[in-house]
Amino acid sequence: MKMQRLGKSDLEVPIWCLGTMTFGNQTSEAEGHAQIDAALEAGLNFLDTAEMYPVNPAKAETVGRTEEIIGNWVAKSGRGSDVVIATKIVGPSKLARDEKGITAATLREAVDSSLRRLQVDVIDLYQLHWPQRGSYHFRQHWSFAPEQQDRAATRANMEEVMAEMGRLREAGKVRHFGTSNESAWGMTRWNQLAAELGGPRMETVQNEYSLLCRMYDTDMAEMSHQEEVSLLAYSPLAAGLLTGKYEGGARPEGSRASINGDLGGRITARAEAATDAYVALAREHGVDPVHMALAWAAERPFMGSVIFGATTMAQLQHILAGTEFTLTEALREGIAEIYRAHPLPY
Protein backbone atom coordinates (compact mmCIF):
# COMPACT_ATOMS: atom_id res chain seq x y z
CA MET A 1 0.00 0.00 0.00
CA LYS A 2 1.51 3.31 -1.08
CA MET A 3 2.08 5.63 1.88
CA GLN A 4 2.01 9.43 1.81
CA ARG A 5 3.10 12.14 4.24
CA LEU A 6 0.36 14.70 4.83
CA GLY A 7 1.59 18.24 4.31
CA LYS A 8 4.62 18.97 6.46
CA SER A 9 3.30 16.79 9.30
CA ASP A 10 4.67 13.52 10.63
CA LEU A 11 1.47 11.70 9.63
CA GLU A 12 2.09 8.86 7.17
CA VAL A 13 -1.12 7.51 5.69
CA PRO A 14 -2.05 5.18 2.82
CA ILE A 15 -3.10 6.73 -0.48
CA TRP A 16 -6.55 5.24 0.26
CA CYS A 17 -8.79 6.35 3.15
CA LEU A 18 -11.95 4.64 4.36
CA GLY A 19 -14.80 7.15 4.55
CA THR A 20 -17.44 6.37 7.17
CA MET A 21 -20.27 8.83 6.55
CA THR A 22 -22.85 6.06 6.08
CA PHE A 23 -22.02 4.29 9.38
CA GLY A 24 -25.13 4.48 11.53
CA ASN A 25 -27.56 5.08 8.70
CA GLN A 26 -27.19 3.09 5.48
CA THR A 27 -24.44 0.99 7.09
CA SER A 28 -25.10 -0.72 10.42
CA GLU A 29 -22.66 -0.65 13.31
CA ALA A 30 -21.75 -4.32 12.82
CA GLU A 31 -21.15 -3.79 9.11
CA GLY A 32 -19.12 -0.66 9.84
CA HIS A 33 -16.89 -2.58 12.24
CA ALA A 34 -16.45 -5.33 9.65
CA GLN A 35 -15.45 -2.72 7.07
CA ILE A 36 -12.75 -1.30 9.36
CA ASP A 37 -11.41 -4.81 9.96
CA ALA A 38 -11.36 -5.56 6.22
CA ALA A 39 -9.63 -2.27 5.43
CA LEU A 40 -6.95 -2.95 8.05
CA GLU A 41 -6.39 -6.41 6.65
CA ALA A 42 -5.78 -4.80 3.25
CA GLY A 43 -3.22 -2.38 4.75
CA LEU A 44 -5.55 0.60 4.83
CA ASN A 45 -5.42 2.15 8.30
CA PHE A 46 -6.75 5.67 7.62
CA LEU A 47 -10.34 6.52 8.65
CA ASP A 48 -12.20 9.74 7.91
CA THR A 49 -15.28 10.79 9.84
CA ALA A 50 -17.01 13.91 11.17
CA GLU A 51 -19.24 14.91 14.03
CA MET A 52 -22.12 15.58 11.60
CA TYR A 53 -22.07 11.97 10.30
CA PRO A 54 -24.01 9.90 9.36
CA VAL A 55 -25.48 11.67 6.35
CA ASN A 56 -28.07 10.89 3.68
CA PRO A 57 -29.63 12.65 5.40
CA ALA A 58 -27.72 14.52 8.10
CA LYS A 59 -29.97 15.09 11.14
CA ALA A 60 -29.43 16.89 14.43
CA GLU A 61 -30.52 13.80 16.37
CA THR A 62 -27.82 11.63 14.75
CA VAL A 63 -24.89 14.06 15.10
CA GLY A 64 -21.93 12.10 16.47
CA ARG A 65 -23.36 8.65 15.79
CA THR A 66 -20.65 7.64 13.30
CA GLU A 67 -17.91 8.69 15.72
CA GLU A 68 -19.61 6.59 18.40
CA ILE A 69 -19.57 3.56 16.10
CA ILE A 70 -15.85 4.02 15.44
CA GLY A 71 -15.27 4.51 19.17
CA ASN A 72 -17.08 1.27 19.93
CA TRP A 73 -14.80 -0.48 17.43
CA VAL A 74 -11.75 1.07 19.15
CA ALA A 75 -12.95 -0.16 22.55
CA LYS A 76 -13.95 -3.61 21.33
CA SER A 77 -10.89 -4.30 19.19
CA GLY A 78 -8.22 -2.64 21.32
CA ARG A 79 -6.63 -1.53 18.05
CA GLY A 80 -7.04 2.22 18.32
CA SER A 81 -3.30 2.71 17.95
CA ASP A 82 -3.39 0.84 14.62
CA VAL A 83 -5.52 3.46 12.86
CA VAL A 84 -5.10 7.11 11.91
CA ILE A 85 -8.38 8.91 12.55
CA ALA A 86 -9.43 12.18 10.95
CA THR A 87 -12.60 13.95 12.05
CA LYS A 88 -14.21 17.39 11.73
CA ILE A 89 -16.15 20.12 13.52
CA VAL A 90 -19.41 20.70 11.70
CA GLY A 91 -19.08 24.46 11.12
CA PRO A 92 -21.99 26.93 10.87
CA SER A 93 -25.05 24.68 10.79
CA LYS A 94 -28.47 24.06 12.28
CA LEU A 95 -27.19 20.59 13.17
CA ALA A 96 -25.12 21.63 16.18
CA ARG A 97 -24.49 24.37 18.74
CA ASP A 98 -27.36 26.62 17.64
CA GLU A 99 -25.54 27.65 14.45
CA LYS A 100 -22.75 29.33 16.41
CA GLY A 101 -20.24 27.93 13.95
CA ILE A 102 -16.52 27.68 14.67
CA THR A 103 -15.14 29.76 17.51
CA ALA A 104 -12.55 29.04 20.19
CA ALA A 105 -15.28 27.85 22.55
CA THR A 106 -17.14 25.65 20.04
CA LEU A 107 -13.88 24.17 18.73
CA ARG A 108 -12.86 23.16 22.24
CA GLU A 109 -16.32 21.71 22.93
CA ALA A 110 -16.37 19.80 19.63
CA VAL A 111 -12.89 18.31 20.12
CA ASP A 112 -13.76 17.13 23.64
CA SER A 113 -17.00 15.58 22.37
CA SER A 114 -15.22 13.80 19.52
CA LEU A 115 -12.55 12.44 21.85
CA ARG A 116 -15.24 11.04 24.10
CA ARG A 117 -17.23 9.47 21.26
CA LEU A 118 -14.14 8.06 19.51
CA GLN A 119 -12.78 6.71 22.81
CA VAL A 120 -9.26 7.91 22.03
CA ASP A 121 -6.86 10.22 23.88
CA VAL A 122 -5.77 12.23 20.85
CA ILE A 123 -7.20 12.97 17.40
CA ASP A 124 -4.65 12.52 14.62
CA LEU A 125 -6.14 15.05 12.20
CA TYR A 126 -8.86 17.53 13.14
CA GLN A 127 -10.54 19.47 10.35
CA LEU A 128 -12.87 22.44 9.99
CA HIS A 129 -15.74 20.99 7.96
CA TRP A 130 -16.78 24.36 6.47
CA PRO A 131 -15.17 27.80 6.51
CA GLN A 132 -16.86 30.10 9.01
CA ARG A 133 -17.17 32.74 6.26
CA GLY A 134 -18.98 30.41 3.84
CA SER A 135 -17.92 28.24 0.91
CA TYR A 136 -18.45 27.73 -2.82
CA HIS A 137 -18.45 23.93 -2.61
CA PHE A 138 -21.41 21.60 -3.08
CA ARG A 139 -22.62 23.50 -6.17
CA GLN A 140 -22.66 26.83 -4.33
CA HIS A 141 -20.15 28.28 -6.82
CA TRP A 142 -23.05 29.33 -9.05
CA SER A 143 -24.00 32.01 -6.54
CA PHE A 144 -20.78 32.46 -4.54
CA ALA A 145 -20.40 36.11 -3.42
CA PRO A 146 -17.13 36.63 -1.52
CA GLU A 147 -17.64 40.40 -1.69
CA GLN A 148 -20.27 39.93 1.01
CA GLN A 149 -17.72 38.57 3.48
CA ASP A 150 -16.72 40.79 6.39
CA ARG A 151 -12.93 40.95 6.02
CA ALA A 152 -12.22 42.10 9.57
CA ALA A 153 -14.55 39.53 11.14
CA THR A 154 -13.11 36.74 8.97
CA ARG A 155 -9.53 37.48 9.95
CA ALA A 156 -10.41 37.96 13.62
CA ASN A 157 -12.18 34.60 13.66
CA MET A 158 -9.20 32.87 12.02
CA GLU A 159 -6.86 34.29 14.66
CA GLU A 160 -9.20 33.27 17.48
CA VAL A 161 -9.59 29.73 16.14
CA MET A 162 -5.87 29.33 15.46
CA ALA A 163 -5.04 30.33 19.02
CA GLU A 164 -7.39 27.63 20.30
CA MET A 165 -5.89 25.11 17.86
CA GLY A 166 -2.54 25.82 19.48
CA ARG A 167 -3.95 25.24 22.94
CA LEU A 168 -5.55 21.96 21.87
CA ARG A 169 -2.26 20.80 20.40
CA GLU A 170 -0.35 21.79 23.52
CA ALA A 171 -2.89 19.90 25.63
CA GLY A 172 -2.18 16.76 23.58
CA LYS A 173 -5.75 16.50 22.29
CA VAL A 174 -5.02 17.02 18.56
CA ARG A 175 -1.87 16.18 16.59
CA HIS A 176 -2.52 18.06 13.36
CA PHE A 177 -5.16 20.25 11.73
CA GLY A 178 -6.76 20.62 8.33
CA THR A 179 -9.71 22.23 6.60
CA SER A 180 -12.49 21.10 4.31
CA ASN A 181 -14.46 22.78 1.52
CA GLU A 182 -11.86 25.56 1.46
CA SER A 183 -10.53 27.96 -1.17
CA ALA A 184 -7.00 28.84 -2.26
CA TRP A 185 -7.20 32.16 -0.41
CA GLY A 186 -8.46 30.47 2.74
CA MET A 187 -5.71 27.87 2.80
CA THR A 188 -2.98 30.40 2.09
CA ARG A 189 -4.28 32.77 4.75
CA TRP A 190 -4.47 30.03 7.38
CA ASN A 191 -0.84 29.11 6.83
CA GLN A 192 0.30 32.72 6.66
CA LEU A 193 -1.26 33.20 10.10
CA ALA A 194 0.41 30.04 11.36
CA ALA A 195 3.78 31.45 10.30
CA GLU A 196 3.04 34.87 11.78
CA LEU A 197 1.54 33.69 15.08
CA GLY A 198 3.40 30.43 15.61
CA GLY A 199 0.15 28.46 15.44
CA PRO A 200 -0.51 25.03 13.93
CA ARG A 201 -0.44 24.76 10.13
CA MET A 202 -3.31 23.46 8.09
CA GLU A 203 -1.65 20.35 6.68
CA THR A 204 -4.56 19.13 4.58
CA VAL A 205 -7.65 20.30 2.76
CA GLN A 206 -10.56 17.95 2.15
CA ASN A 207 -12.38 19.02 -1.02
CA GLU A 208 -14.48 17.22 -3.59
CA TYR A 209 -12.38 15.83 -6.44
CA SER A 210 -13.14 13.34 -9.18
CA LEU A 211 -13.13 12.94 -12.94
CA LEU A 212 -16.39 14.93 -12.90
CA CYS A 213 -15.31 17.58 -10.39
CA ARG A 214 -11.88 19.04 -11.15
CA MET A 215 -12.13 22.52 -9.66
CA TYR A 216 -8.99 21.71 -7.64
CA ASP A 217 -6.78 21.53 -10.73
CA THR A 218 -5.92 25.24 -10.99
CA ASP A 219 -5.53 27.62 -8.03
CA MET A 220 -5.88 24.89 -5.41
CA ALA A 221 -3.30 22.70 -7.13
CA GLU A 222 -0.87 25.63 -7.13
CA MET A 223 -1.63 26.25 -3.45
CA SER A 224 -0.93 22.59 -2.64
CA HIS A 225 2.46 22.80 -4.30
CA GLN A 226 3.54 26.17 -2.93
CA GLU A 227 2.12 25.77 0.59
CA GLU A 228 2.89 22.02 0.92
CA VAL A 229 -0.71 21.11 1.67
CA SER A 230 -2.14 17.68 0.79
CA LEU A 231 -5.57 17.10 -0.70
CA LEU A 232 -7.87 14.56 0.90
CA ALA A 233 -10.30 13.95 -1.94
CA TYR A 234 -13.91 13.18 -1.11
CA SER A 235 -16.50 11.81 -3.56
CA PRO A 236 -13.83 10.44 -5.96
CA LEU A 237 -16.56 8.37 -7.60
CA ALA A 238 -18.86 11.41 -7.86
CA ALA A 239 -21.27 9.97 -5.30
CA GLY A 240 -21.51 6.76 -7.33
CA LEU A 241 -22.00 8.26 -10.80
CA LEU A 242 -18.61 7.03 -12.01
CA THR A 243 -19.43 3.43 -11.07
CA GLY A 244 -21.91 3.33 -13.94
CA LYS A 245 -24.71 2.12 -11.68
CA TYR A 246 -26.98 5.02 -12.63
CA GLU A 247 -26.70 4.43 -16.39
CA GLY A 248 -29.90 4.92 -18.32
CA GLY A 249 -31.63 6.58 -15.35
CA ALA A 250 -31.30 3.53 -13.10
CA ARG A 251 -31.78 4.14 -9.36
CA PRO A 252 -30.82 0.96 -7.49
CA GLU A 253 -32.71 0.45 -4.26
CA GLY A 254 -30.73 1.74 -1.27
CA SER A 255 -28.38 3.82 -3.43
CA ARG A 256 -27.73 7.49 -2.63
CA ALA A 257 -29.69 8.61 -5.68
CA SER A 258 -32.70 6.58 -4.53
CA ILE A 259 -32.56 8.54 -1.26
CA ASN A 260 -31.70 12.09 -2.26
CA GLY A 261 -32.61 12.27 -5.94
CA ASP A 262 -30.05 14.28 -7.88
CA LEU A 263 -27.06 13.52 -5.61
CA GLY A 264 -26.86 17.05 -4.31
CA GLY A 265 -26.98 18.58 -7.78
CA ARG A 266 -24.48 16.16 -9.34
CA ILE A 267 -26.94 14.45 -11.68
CA THR A 268 -27.30 16.71 -14.70
CA ALA A 269 -27.62 15.98 -18.39
CA ARG A 270 -24.02 17.09 -18.90
CA ALA A 271 -22.79 14.95 -15.98
CA GLU A 272 -24.55 11.91 -17.39
CA ALA A 273 -22.95 12.48 -20.80
CA ALA A 274 -19.50 12.82 -19.23
CA THR A 275 -20.07 9.75 -17.07
CA ASP A 276 -21.11 7.70 -20.09
CA ALA A 277 -17.88 8.72 -21.83
CA TYR A 278 -15.65 7.73 -18.90
CA VAL A 279 -17.45 4.42 -18.35
CA ALA A 280 -17.21 3.63 -22.07
CA LEU A 281 -13.46 4.41 -22.00
CA ALA A 282 -12.91 2.00 -19.13
CA ARG A 283 -14.88 -0.76 -20.84
CA GLU A 284 -13.09 -0.15 -24.14
CA HIS A 285 -9.81 -0.91 -22.34
CA GLY A 286 -11.23 -3.83 -20.39
CA VAL A 287 -10.93 -2.21 -16.96
CA ASP A 288 -13.40 -1.55 -14.18
CA PRO A 289 -14.65 2.07 -14.25
CA VAL A 290 -14.45 2.23 -10.43
CA HIS A 291 -10.80 1.18 -10.44
CA MET A 292 -10.00 3.58 -13.30
CA ALA A 293 -11.58 6.58 -11.56
CA LEU A 294 -9.88 5.87 -8.23
CA ALA A 295 -6.47 5.14 -9.78
CA TRP A 296 -6.64 8.41 -11.69
CA ALA A 297 -7.34 10.36 -8.49
CA ALA A 298 -4.59 8.54 -6.57
CA GLU A 299 -1.85 9.51 -9.01
CA ARG A 300 -2.57 13.25 -8.99
CA PRO A 301 0.55 15.14 -7.79
CA PHE A 302 -1.19 16.96 -4.92
CA MET A 303 -3.00 13.91 -3.54
CA GLY A 304 -2.60 13.02 0.12
CA SER A 305 -5.29 10.35 0.25
CA VAL A 306 -8.40 9.38 -1.71
CA ILE A 307 -11.43 8.96 0.54
CA PHE A 308 -13.95 6.39 -0.61
CA GLY A 309 -17.03 5.11 1.15
CA ALA A 310 -18.86 1.83 0.82
CA THR A 311 -22.41 1.25 1.93
CA THR A 312 -21.91 -2.52 1.90
CA MET A 313 -19.06 -4.96 2.40
CA ALA A 314 -19.44 -6.11 -1.20
CA GLN A 315 -18.80 -2.55 -2.41
CA LEU A 316 -15.75 -2.28 -0.15
CA GLN A 317 -14.28 -5.54 -1.40
CA HIS A 318 -14.83 -4.38 -4.99
CA ILE A 319 -12.86 -1.20 -4.31
CA LEU A 320 -10.10 -2.95 -2.36
CA ALA A 321 -9.61 -5.36 -5.25
CA GLY A 322 -8.45 -2.46 -7.40
CA THR A 323 -6.15 -0.58 -5.04
CA GLU A 324 -3.03 -1.77 -6.90
CA PHE A 325 -4.43 -0.90 -10.33
CA THR A 326 -2.49 1.74 -12.29
CA LEU A 327 -3.47 3.62 -15.41
CA THR A 328 -1.94 2.95 -18.80
CA GLU A 329 -0.80 5.87 -20.93
CA ALA A 330 -3.67 5.13 -23.30
CA LEU A 331 -6.15 5.55 -20.45
CA ARG A 332 -4.54 8.82 -19.38
CA GLU A 333 -4.78 10.14 -22.93
CA GLY A 334 -8.42 9.02 -23.17
CA ILE A 335 -9.25 10.73 -19.88
CA ALA A 336 -7.60 13.96 -21.04
CA GLU A 337 -9.60 13.90 -24.27
CA ILE A 338 -12.90 13.37 -22.43
CA TYR A 339 -12.04 16.13 -19.94
CA ARG A 340 -11.57 18.64 -22.75
CA ALA A 341 -14.99 17.69 -24.11
CA HIS A 342 -16.72 17.69 -20.70
CA PRO A 343 -14.79 20.17 -18.51
CA LEU A 344 -17.32 21.10 -15.80
CA PRO A 345 -20.34 18.81 -15.96
CA TYR A 346 -21.88 19.99 -12.66
Score class of each variant (00 low, 15 high):
Gly178Cys: 01
Glu272Lys: 14
Lys245Val: 10
Leu95Phe: 14
Gly64Cys: 05
Arg65Tyr: 02
Leu128Trp: 11
Arg116Gln: 13
Val120Leu: 13
Arg167Gln: 14
Arg214Gln: 14
Val83Met: 09
Arg133Trp: 13
Tyr278Ala: 02
Asp48Asn: 13
Thr243Glu: 11
Val55His: 09
Glu299Trp: 05
Asn207Lys: 07
Arg256Cys: 07
Tyr234Thr: 01
Thr218Leu: 15
Glu109Met: 10
Val205Tyr: 11
Ala280Met: 06
Ala194Phe: 02
Thr66Leu: 02
Ile36Ala: 02
Pro146Gln: 03
Gly172Cys: 06
Asp10Asn: 15
Thr27His: 12
Leu263Glu: 05
Thr49Glu: 09
Trp130Asn: 00
Pro343Ala: 07
Leu316Val: 07
Thr62Val: 09
Ala34Asn: 10
Arg79Gln: 15
Ala39Glu: 10
Lys173Val: 04
Ser180Ala: 03
Asn72Met: 06
Leu263Trp: 01
Glu12Gln: 15
Glu164Phe: 00
Asp37His: 09
Asp112Tyr: 09
Met202His: 04
Arg65Cys: 05
Ala273Glu: 15
Thr87Tyr: 00
Ile36Ser: 02
Glu337Cys: 06
Leu128Gln: 12
Asn260Gln: 14
Tyr346His: 11
Gly286Ala: 03
Ala96His: 13
Glu109Arg: 12
Ser230Ala: 07
Met223Thr: 09
Gln127Leu: 10
Leu118Glu: 03
Ala58Thr: 06
Val63Leu: 02
Ala110Val: 04
Asp112Gln: 15
Val120His: 03
Trp142Pro: 00
Ala310Leu: 04
Leu118Ala: 10
Arg133Gln: 15
Ala336Lys: 13
Thr179Ser: 14
Gly265Thr: 02
Thr154Ala: 13
Gly249Asp: 09
Val306Trp: 02
Thr268Asn: 07
Tyr246Leu: 05
Leu125Ser: 05
Thr323Met: 15
Ala75Trp: 10
Leu118Asp: 08
Gly261Ala: 10
Ala297Gln: 07
Asp262Thr: 04
Trp296His: 12
Ser210Asn: 01
Leu95Val: 11
Leu281Thr: 00
Gly199Pro: 01
Ser113Tyr: 04
Ser258Asn: 10
Arg169His: 11
Ala295Glu: 03
Ala34Tyr: 08
Asp288Arg: 11
Val120Lys: 04
Arg201Asp: 07
Met52Gly: 00
Trp16Glu: 12
Met165Tyr: 00
Pro146Ser: 11
His129Pro: 00
Gly198Ile: 10
Arg5Pro: 08
Ala250Tyr: 02
His137Tyr: 14
Thr22Asp: 05
Ala239Met: 14
Trp73Arg: 06
Glu227Pro: 11
Tyr209Asn: 00
Leu168Val: 08
Leu327Ser: 00
Leu211Gln: 01
Ser93Met: 09
Lys2Gln: 15
Ser9Phe: 00
His285Asn: 13
Ala330Trp: 02
Glu31Trp: 08
Val229Asp: 00
Arg65Ser: 12
Gln119Ile: 03
Glu99Pro: 07
Asp219Ala: 14
Met162Glu: 12
Thr179His: 05
Met162Gly: 13
Tyr278Leu: 07
Thr22Ser: 14
Thr268Gln: 06
Val83Ser: 10
Asp219Phe: 08
His342Tyr: 14
Phe46Ala: 01
Arg251Gly: 08
Thr49Met: 04
Ile123Asn: 04
Ile307Glu: 02
Pro301His: 08
